[in-house]
Amino acid sequence: MATQTQETQDVQAHGDGHGHHERLQHHFISLDQQFSSAKLGMWLFLVTELLLFSGMFVAYAVYMQWYPEAFAVASEALDWKMGFANTIVLLASSLTVALSIHFIQKGNTKAMITSLSATLGLAVVFLIVKYFEYTDKFSHGIYPGEAFNPTGSYAYLDVPNAVQYFSIYYVMTGIHAVHVIVGMLVFAWLIYRALRHHFSPEWYTPVELGGLYWHFVDLVWIFLFPLLYLL
């Protein structure tokens, strides 16, 4: 190739007659450009995710401002220790994702697989804690959506408009939990590919993008924890 750059010169041919890295797609000049483009695309996706969650945060802000007493009493009913435990779990999983990228950049596939598996394990722990939280609410008769009554309260929590708080709680933590499940599927796929040695220091774009997604899921929780459990 006449336009070969310094970066692409030392990579192997992939067998169809021209010498460049097997992961480099033909519409990109270099692996570097391909990587930056993929990352920009991921950041734009995260902006749409940000706008999705911001709608729910605005709903939270409006209803908290309309019914401050209901929100104060209802958030006391949540167990902050569970939220705290899950915060630590998600922060630790963010660390393991960042470490997995560190390891693949250094060519250590084995350590990367360990880190990604740790992340997947922490995501499972997060959902287990969530399961105990939700079943505790169910045992007090607090269900999502059922017979929604905007000014209603519960036998367990006799404050007008308490239903408003818990509908927002279920929607926000529920959509966040869906993101955690999607993240688990992403990590399972990444581990599967890593076991087949698909990633290298030259090309690890899926790990990087999966990592960005997971950090975003962590970011949402960083705001959900104080707003739902502590205030």
Binding site: D10, F35, I101, H102, Q105, E202
Partner: peptide, 15 residues
Amino acid sequence: MAHGHHIIPKKTLFS
């Protein structure tokens, strides 16, 4: 490292 990605040191990540 073929194309100048910054490797964040483990020490930074842990702190």
